[in-house]
Each structure stands twice: as structure tokens, then as C-alpha cells.
Simulated scan of single mutants.
Amino acid sequence: MVDTKLAGRTVLVTGASGGIGAAVARAFSAEGARVAVHYFSERTAPPGVTWEHVTPAADVAEALAAGLRDAVAVPADLREPDAARRLFDAVERLLGPVDVLVNNAAHCETPDTFGALTTDGLRRHYEVNAIAPALLISELASRQRDGREPCVVNVSTDAARAFPGQIGYGTSKAALEALTRAAALDLGAAGIRVNAVAPGPVQTGWMDAETYARAGEIVPLGRVGEPADIADAVVFLASHQARWITGQVLQVAGGHAL
């Protein structure tokens, strides 16, 4: 039996109200971890942008707690300059110091291609997908104490190298992968590991039947991914078994976009 040594550790998962984030929260809870389920708290939505991340996060936290695990739902708008500090303060107050940070929250909007790019649209992508993870990692590092070995797992995409039609999203995820490597080098001496997973096509509700079938045909392993496929990889990178792994981007995509 493998002991991940995650039992009793505090895990903060951003963007965990559904999809991959909720699956990651459940996977850590199954390992005995205390889980903070972050969700997007809307203040002001930009004109023409519809936010879909409302609060089933409370339902996720309640379901985890029903399994006799410590779990809480914590709101934050990651675009706000002090969101990282306030989020860490809340989690520490409710569950204790953060041992594992999973930067899963992401912003994606359309149209997002050449000829339709806007300053505001690009800014929103980078604020959530690159700047917020950097500030959250910095907050984790600033609270590091001797004897603890916290780690970070960032969630990118296997299309980060080139994502036509998704310029803001794809390039902000490429920045997240560069951040992963830089943070691993800068924070290694402090005992903080930083890695990333790069999911391929995963069904989180956005694929209709035609898209689902087409995506399955282009994946070498012959099927579309499920949130649990990504969650298991995230748990591995945070586990004791990955204790000498840092600065890596692990593609979890069934061989898609190699």
C-alpha cells in the first residue's frame, strides 16, 4: 500500500467549485487531507463577460465534510491585488497553514483570436491564469517555516505551446509553465517543490456529443479525459512519492499533443 503522507496536511485548491478542481479536492480528501475549496466570488463582471463560476463550492466542501474530513469553502476574486493574502489568512484561520497549493483556477473567454483581441480580455486572462498563481506562490513562500515542506501544483494545458484561437488563454498558460520552472529554481533551497500538470481534452461539461466523439478520435489512448485523471496526477506530484521532483510539467493527456 502506498502512503502519500498527505493525511492531516492542509490543501488549498483554487477554482474548485466543479470540474477538475472539485475532482482534485475530492482526491486530496480521500488521502485524509484537510481541503480548502476556493471559488470565485464575483464583484463586478466586465461588460459582455458572463461568469459561470458561482458557488457549488459549498456543496463540494459539505460533501467532503460528510466523509468526516475537514473541508471548507473559501471565496476570493483572484483578480484583486490582495486576494492571495486574504485567501491564505482565511485558510490558516479555518484549517491551519497551507501545505499544498493547487493553482487550478482559470479564466477563458471567446472570441480570443487575432482580429478580436482586446486589452481588457488579455488582461483578464493574465490576471487569473498567470499573475494570481505567481502571487499565491509568493504568499506560500513568505509563510514558509522550518520543518515544513510545502509544494505547489499548477494546472496548465497541453496546448500551452501553441493554442490557435485561444491566444490569451494559451499564452497565459505558457506563462504559468515558465512560472513553474522559475519558482522551482528560486524556492528549492527553501524546500518548496513546484510542478505542473498539463491536461489534454477533458470532459468537464463543455463538450457536446459531437465534440466529445471528435476529441476521443485524436487522443492516442482512444478516449477523452475525465477530471479524476487529472486529479490523480496532481495528488501524485504533491505526494511523498514525488519528493525529488520539481520544476516539471507533466502532460496528462492520453498522448494528445505530444
Rank of each mutant, 00 (worst) to 15 (best):
P150I: 01
V11I: 09
Y39F: 15
S29P: 05
L136Y: 02
R123Y: 02
L176T: 00
W206R: 14
R223A: 12
L185Q: 13
T119I: 11
R69K: 14
I20H: 05
A71S: 15
G48N: 12
L221E: 13
V24W: 06
M207E: 10
T211F: 12
A183V: 09
A174S: 13
V224L: 12
N103V: 09
E80C: 00
R193T: 05
S41W: 07
W51V: 15
A61M: 12
V49G: 03
N129M: 13
D70V: 05
A175C: 07
G222D: 11
G168C: 01
R193I: 08
A25P: 01
G170V: 01
A27S: 14
W206K: 11
A57G: 15
V54P: 12
W206H: 11
F114Y: 15
A36M: 07
G200W: 01
P56D: 14
V74N: 02
D208R: 14
A242W: 04
G18I: 07
L12W: 11
A238F: 06
P47R: 02
Q203I: 02
S17P: 09
V155Y: 04
V249Y: 05
G254E: 07
V11C: 07
T44G: 08
N129T: 06
A116F: 10
G67R: 15
Y169H: 14
F163Y: 15
T171A: 10
D99S: 13
I245S: 06
L87M: 04
A61Q: 08
G254P: 06
V249K: 07
A7M: 11
A7Q: 15
A233C: 11
R143V: 05
V202E: 03
I245F: 05
P81K: 01
P150K: 12
E62M: 10
D89V: 11
E62G: 13
A7G: 14
R26V: 08
A196W: 03
V252C: 09
R86S: 10
V11L: 12
R69I: 04
R148C: 00
T50G: 07
A238D: 06
D3N: 15
V234A: 12
V219I: 10
G115T: 04
L135Y: 08
P97C: 02
V98C: 00
P227D: 13
V152A: 00
P164I: 05
A253Y: 06
N154R: 09
Y212R: 15
D186M: 07
R93M: 07
V234F: 06
A130W: 01
A134C: 04
A16I: 04
I192E: 01
D59P: 02
D146G: 03
E80F: 01
E42M: 15
F88A: 01
A57D: 05
L117K: 12
R181D: 00
T50H: 14
G147M: 13
A160P: 02
Y169D: 03
D120E: 15
Y169V: 06
L221I: 13
